[in-house]
Design a protein around this nucleic acid. Structure first.
Lengths: 259, 259
DNA sequence: CGACGACTTGACATCGATCAAGCGAGGTGG
DNA sequence: CCACCTCGCTTGATCGATGTCAAGTCGTCG
């Protein structure tokens, strides 16, 4: 099942990484975790390329060329667009195992700009081969669908907060989403890296970088947030989730989606 | 093909509306228009109920009960949710022929609150029968997919504006979306009704009702907007579209999506 | 006529943007 | 090793945008 995947795999630095780990391991783990199952995910046939990212690497939406399905193996990525004034807006963030342009799976004409942060690893899936694989494995197809529904719902939740709530709540919501993306990618340390610069955070939640800096400082002063050497820790995440009515759509158990 | 539809059709006021027009006429017209085709849309088999709305009529998301697919025959509707502070947020607006909860088609567990404004007409589609119909008519299925992709892209465009742009631009974007929904539903008059109260507009674009009032007044003073007896007209829509980089994702011709 | 809802208007307070300067860590060249 | 640069971030001063509170207008309906 994974033969073709292994054959076609490329690596930017084969020397340093000796182990032949599955490039889609994180993706499968995410899908199973979100779906609440343990079975296999039949997706290896769709894998074409796997590569590393040294510096922040943008991928521009090009209407003229087809865009493969981007899966983030490791690291952090985001999708973005530009506003009339020339400012950038970040639409969504992606952690390890995430699919960065799922809309393109069923709508080939869909394109989006993606930014892969330094240290990330990318895997590319072929749309048609993925379709072929999922048509033959309805259980796997259901996992993809379940997972992307969760992302859709989470995006709606964040968007509501970003449109209507003040800066501190917007920022809190983003940090909760970020924490969740890390957790879904297997990173559940107590202290988490921001992963994004304050400018990128600003472009995500629609305020200026200066205000991000001040808001972070205020949250730290209020005891909601701790910062240490470029990492952060939410002091009382459950309290914040209750405050924002933040729901976890990636949990396979609906009862966990409240508070 | 439409036999079952006709048999099961209900009408709240059979006396006043003598003509037996197709309840899904607007839907089909929208799908064909967006898809740039003229062929038939095979969806009649999924129709279960058609009814009128006298006063503003909310439909509450109930996780315990399955939700049919809501199609708006006539009038205006919107989906909404509540923010932590108890305030309401309006996520999207729907004109005649629109599908109000398309996400529920492929994700039965999806629920949303809907509000049908006074004077609307609703048609309900059965999810399974719709699935059955679309599986046998790939061309029709493609039309649905094309149409809902356009909605997704338009929502992303509006959300970006609502998160990052000042009130006047947010309001302009909403009015352009509203105008587009009307046009897709067959209403292309020079003067269009607001359809939403200023409070509803406020809940959509994330500002207060007082500020909506002031912003409308300013736009009128600036000559961008004309108001008369509860209706409005954008003086130079093309100018506004260029200003906001507003794209028409519902146009079947990609070249129209710019300016 | 009175009640009500939608909207408008004014005064004021608060939030967030803007502009400008400075700090500190990491990299680079001499 | 130091001087210097750059980048990400911080801080202060000020201004404009938006929210809040309150009063008032207007049209509709009974």
């Amino acid at each position: 099942m994974g033969n073709r995947a292994m054959q076609q795999r490329e690596s930017a630095d084969p020397g340093t990484q000796g182990e032949q780990t599955d490039p889609l391991l994180r993706l499968k783990a995410r899908l199973c975790r979100t779906g609440g199952v343990q079975g296999p995910v039949e997706v290896d046939d769709a894998l074409t390329v796997s590569r590393d990212v040294q510096q922040d690497h943008p991928v521009w939406a090009d209407p003229a060329r087809p865009q493969p399905i981007y899966v983030l193996q490791e690291g952090l990525a985001y999708s973005f667009a530009f506003l009339p004034g020339g400012r950038r807006h970040i639409d969504d963030i992606f952690g390890a195992g995430a699919i960065c342009n799922w809309t393109g799976y069923s709508a080939p004409e869909y394109r989006c700009n993606l930014m892969f942060k330094a240290g990330s690893k990318i895997a590319l899936l072929d749309r048609l081969r993925l379709r072929h694989a999922l048509e033959h494995h309805p259980a796997s197809a259901a996992l993809f669908q379940r997972h992307e529904l969760a992302r859709t719902l989470r995006t709606s939740q964040r968007v509501r907060a970003l449109i209507s709530l003040p800066a501190s709540h917007r920022l809190t919501n983003l940090l909760l989403d970020l924490q969740q993306e890390y957790a879904l990618g297997g990173l559940e340390d107590e202290w988490l890296p921001f992963g994004l610069t304050q400018q990128e955070i600003a472009d995500t939640i629609g305020i200026t970088m200066v205000h991000v800096s001040r808001t972070l400082a205020k949250m730290a002063e209020a005891g909601e947030l701790e910062r240490r050497r470029g990492k952060f820790r939410l002091s009382r995440p459950d309290h914040l989730k209750r405050l924002l009515d933040y729901r976890d759509f990636f949990s396979p158990h609906p009862e966990n989606q409240h508070a």
